[in-house]
């Protein structure tokens, strides 16, 4: 199935580039909507085909998780675009989605490897999908952080903007919490205990805790916005370590989450 990847990826990438380009113009809003949806649909079709072809959810290798990441980035970016009319968010999320497809194309971590028994669980799809949504939203919040730092320099930061950022963090953090708990429930069924401080679990906990700190710092806080955004960016760095930096850490060598053998 992966040999058809290029076709679907090209449709997605071209459509998304069109969406990014046309979203800049108010007159071409319809085209932006259509192409954003078309690109996402193309990827969705590829995921469905891959899923049927592999006889298992395509959620095990880094290459496969990148597909979902692109997919949910595109969706959440589009939804936020529709709700808050922030063009930059559509551009950012579609841009990131394109980047992940390109990564898959240039450096294919593509095994048609089959699922080991410990991964065959009803918790698999919900666990990974809520994480993909959480990561997508928190990725977006990191961009809000960067944007916020930029706007502060221009000295026209609006309180509404910070509230929007907080809301994205809240929703992303919610999904992150679900991901942790689903993972724990799954671990109990597969390994006999819900929490073993496996390196991936440890980093997932750290990520969760840093966002928790962010959320609490933002309550009735008089912390400067600059510091707030910096914490948000730090949180995203921890998230990135948890997501793929962990494969290179000495503490992670025995992690049950290191899939490649």
């Amino acid at each position: 199935m992966w040999h058809n990847f290029e076709i679907f990826a090209i449709i997605s990438v071209v459509a998304w580039i069109l969406a990014i380009g046309t979203s800049l113009s108010d007159k071409m809003g319809k085209i932006a909507n259509l192409t954003a949806i078309l690109g996402t649909l193309s990827l969705a079709v590829f995921i469905v085909l891959l899923w049927t072809n592999l006889h298992r959810p395509p959620l095990r290798t880094l290459g496969e998780t990148r597909l979902w990441y692109s997919f949910f980035l595109a969706i959440s970016g589009y939804v936020i675009f529709k709700r808050w009319k922030i063009k930059l968010m559509l551009m950012y999320s579609l841009g990131m989605a394109i980047l992940f497809l390109l990564l898959n194309y240039l450096n294919p971590d593509i095994h048609s490897k089959t699922l080991m028994p410990a991964l065959q669980s009803i918790w698999f799809v919900p666990h990974v999908i809520v994480y993909m949504i959480a990561y997508a939203l928190l990725g977006l919040s990191a961009l809000f952080g960067l944007l916020g730092l930029y706007v502060i320099r221009k000295d026209n930061l609006k309180e509404d903007f910070v509230l929007k950022t907080d809301n994205i963090v809240y929703v992303g953090f919610g999904f992150l919490t679900l991901g942790l708990i689903f993972g724990a429930l799954w671990a109990k069924e597969a390994w006999g205990h819900y929490w073993t401080w496996d390196p991936k679990e440890t980093w997932a906990f750290l990520t969760w805790a840093v966002y928790l700190i962010y959320i609490h710092f933002r309550i009735k806080s008089n912390l400067s916005h600059k510091k707030v955004f910096l914490i948000l960016l730090l949180a995203f760095v921890v998230l990135l370590i948890c997501w793929f930096g962990i494969n290179y850490l000495p503490a992670a060598q025995n992690s049950v989450h290191v899939y490649s053998s």
């Binding site: 401080w197 390196p199 440890t202 980093w203 906990f205 750290l206 805790a209 840093v210 928790l212 700190i213 609490h216 710092f217 850490l249 000495p250 503490a251 060598q253 025995n254």
Partner: peptide, 21 residues
Amino acid sequence: ASIAGIILFVVPSLSMALVPQ
């Protein structure tokens, strides 16, 4: 105090995250 509490929980976890147990 809540943030101090979270940090006190996080610091030892950071040891676990970096040093093989």
